[in-house]
Design a binder for these strands. Structure first.
Lengths: 230, 230
DNA sequence: GAGTGGTCTAGACCACTCA
DNA sequence: GAGTGGTCTAGACCACTCC
């Protein structure tokens, strides 16, 4: 029976929820019962239920059973592409410029975010990413040299730190922050906009096995949109 | 063997990737070989591999095999809480105010985004969410009455449309957009800031079984941060 | 203690895709 | 055509949690 694919089971369950056959907060039948009803193995029903639970539509508890979520704290995913890919996906030509590179004790603000002692030497990079010649993203990055010692020998003149890091230091854990900020005079000049303009800012902290790797602040000119689907 | 849990297998694979035992772009052994190596069933190895692939660390293709991602299009998740929960999680008192409510043909901009004919009647709501008395979010929402007919009978004077919808019309699919925008005079007044200030804007489109449900634009005053972990 | 979900196994067949 | 991942089954044991 192709009826018994976990996708079909999932969408049938979705239908029941959508049409209030299964109401919010209500207990739905156990895995065994559903398996019998759908003529499938319990593992198959389990996969359908787990996926619905992972996306927040259902809530499951051992012994208590499975319920339609009352306050669906839904989750969505967004992808973290490389700037280059992001630009090229728009059909634009990508270009990269290194603005500054320095090793030394970093500002307290940077070490604090990474959870490192104040005098830890960090590699500080400022870069500009362009799409069809227009400023696309200003990147302000600190790299923890203890975590990625090879970075000290790399000039980053030709390759962006993001692309470079990606192949050398995968991360296991990260924290993202998104917000809007008014452009400082320097940012305005770099991004080709007016001081005070509304910029979209993304900050990222990454760790590799609990050791901080890098902190980066990525600033986009007005009009930039971050889109994601669920 | 408790060694053979998919979690252990996953973290061992992560270790191999982190320590470059498996290098970016390299082909890793097939499921059968890994299953033999770990002393587990293929299904267990498969689960570990699938989870790593879903988070973007691995790339899998039938026949071609599994590789360590060269350009890790990593994914991160963020939760979609109710405004009330968001505010209360900060320890602030939540308050809600309905600013306007109207049924009628919506502006082209709204129907177009939802993929509906131009003259479709939509319910238009404007609301303000407050944290400790200060403006926290301005909500500008259109609801497709054909998808959620009961919404026509609800005043939304006491309960926010988000909270109301959540229990009545779960969604199966959604699209999110985030960007920064300069405050219009009206937004500035509502959010207690200056015109032109950098606002953080989130837009959300939701569908239930391919039928558009609602379009909402949520605007936050300067300083608002959206944080998420991976 | 008993019921429910969480996970694992061993085996099987299928679907896709590369050569 | 053949190799690899994708999925399903049937059965089993375990872990958590409610009563």
């Amino acid at each position: 029976m192709s009826r018994s694919s976990f996708r079909n089971i999932k969408s049938e369950m979705l239908r029941r929820i959508a049409e209030q056959e299964w109401r919010p907060g209500a207990l739905i039948p156990g895995e065994e019962a559903l398996a019998a009803e759908f003529g499938a193995a319990r593992a198959t029903v389990n996969r359908a239920l787990q996926e619905l639970a992972r996306s927040g539509i259902l809530e499951r508890k051992r012994k208590a059973g499975t319920r339609v979520a009352l306050h669906p704290v839904r989750e969505a995913r967004f992808s973290i592409p490389l700037v280059r890919q992001e630009v090229e996906a728009c059909g634009a030509a990508y270009a990269y410029r290194l603005l500054s590179r320095a090793v030394g004790p970093a500002p307290e603000q940077a070490t604090e975010k990474l959870g490192l002692p104040e005098d830890t030497p960090l590699l500080h990079l400022e870069c500009l990413h362009l799409a069809d010649g227009a400023p696309y993203q200003f990147e302000d990055r600190y790299i923890h040299l203890e975590a990625v010692p090879e970075a000290a020998d790399e000039s980053f003149a030709e390759i962006g730190p993001n692309e470079w890091l990606v192949n050398r230091a995968p991360f296991s854990h990260a924290e993202f922050t998104f917000f809007a900020a008014a452009a400082s005079p320097r940012e305005a000049e770099l991004l080709g906009t007016a001081p005070g303009a509304a910029l979209f800012v993304a900050e990222r902290l990454t760790w590799l096995l609990d050791k901080p790797v890098t902190h980066v602040r990525m600033t986009h000119p007005p009009g930039h949109r971050m889109v994601t689907m669920l």
